[in-house]
């Protein structure tokens, strides 16, 4: 990376990645609800329709199941669709095509086909959109062999991982936290990829490993910065991909710090934190643990409308600070 890398927002980084993908490969096209002249509900596609035309930036009817199925069928027959769900919650309307078709087609047909579809899911709470537009459903899809599920946490990764997803021969599901869309960060120009299936150590530390996903990565970094004043040295691992999971990076980190905390926005129970915790409990890192594993996840409720309640349902920086302090000081 050169010294003067320009900054883009997370949304701009995704848009640039899609433009590069379309420039490089005429099989790449975009589908989704109101992604054309409207620019997408979160302005991620923006003005791409003006540059690439309505034949490559296709507004679909409000038909999530059918639209996802069309994307799967197009991918199966040689195209490289990038399908945008307006909200990740609407994946519930399309689970049939995602779970039964896209994920399993290669396997069911004995390797005779592949389904190189990319699906993008604006996810997460914090926008006041209440219970049906604020969920974090990535673990649902992470449970399905045949899918790859990623959660880029920075503009740099958003671009590089999207380009990796387009190049991938298998279905890749990208969960993008809506509050990240405006986050700015360095993004190099031109083509580069960030590998799917590799976690990133975003901050090195000795006392505690925090495995975080998506927007929780930044919150964990903010908490780590605050804890520095208390001489608590936190290592932050950005999981980036939840299927296939980069187990080794997490295992190595826990062996180094002897403490593990998982921070994620999705409902705590049966989520990514459970998987990471169990994976560590099954690994050689278990013997290195000096304290019980801690999970900080979303509350066991739908996301409420009221802004104070909404904030209270997902982990915030003070929650991470206090849980980390307790963990390191052995309060639990």
């Amino acid at each position: 990376m050169d010294a003067m890398v320009r900054e883009l927002s997370y949304a701009q980084a995704i848009q640039e990645a899609m433009a590069i993908a379309m420039d490089m490969d005429e099989r790449v096209f975009l589908m989704g609800e109101d992604i054309g002249v409207y620019g997408g509900a979160f302005q991620v596609t923006g003005d791409l329709v003006e540059r690439y035309g309505t034949e490559r930036v296709i507004d679909t009817p409000i038909s999530e199941l059918g639209g996802a199925g069309v994307a799967v069928g197009a991918a199966l027959t040689g195209m490289r669709p990038i399908f945008e769900f307006q909200f990740s919650d609407f994946a519930t309307l399309a689970m049939e095509q995602i779970v039964n078709q896209a994920a399993k087609m290669r396997f069911m047909l004995g390797g005779e086909v592949s389904v190189p579809v990319v699906m993008r899911f604006p996810a997460g709470s914090g926008t006041g959109a209440a219970a049906q537009h604020s969920q974090s459903l990535e673990a649902w899809l992470g449970h399905v062999p045949g899918l790859k599920v990623i959660q880029p946490a920075t503009p740099y990764d958003a671009k590089g991982m999207l380009l990796a997803a387009v190049a991938d021969p298998d279905p890749v599901m990208i969960f993008e936290h809506k509050l990240l869309y405006k986050m700015k960060g360095p993004v190099p120009e031109g083509y580069y990829t960030v590998p799917i299936g590799k976690a990133d150590i975003r901050r090195e530390g000795r006392d505690l490993t925090i495995v975080a996903t998506s927007i929780m990565v930044q919150k964990a970094l903010d908490a780590a910065a605050a804890l520095e004043a208390e001489s608590i040295d936190v290592e932050v691992v950005d999981l980036r991909t939840i299927r296939p999971m980069d187990k080794q990076t997490v295992i190595d980190s826990v062996k180094k710090t002897s403490r593990l905390m998982c921070v994620y926005e999705a409902v705590k129970t049966l989520g990514i934190g459970a998987e990471v915790s169990a994976m560590i409990a099954e690994s050689e890192a278990f013997d290195y643990l000096d304290a019980p594993i801690v999970r900080l996840g979303g509350a066991e409720t739908p996301i409420p409308y009221n802004p104070e309640l909404e904030k209270a349902t997902v982990p915030q920086v003070p929650d991470i600070i206090s849980a980390a302090r307790d963990l390191v000081k052995g309060v639990r």
Binding site: V70, G73, T77, E96
Partner: peptide, 28 residues
């Protein structure tokens, strides 16, 4: 299925193949 002969596959889900066929037609 017999992809070489253009059969993209039977389907265990009732109606599952219909949007997929539309996607194949979009590719065409």
């Amino acid at each position: 299925a017999d992809v070489a002969k253009g059969n993209l596959g039977a389907n265990g889900i009732v109606g599952g193949g219909i949007p997929i066929a539309v996607g194949a037609a979009l590719s065409s």
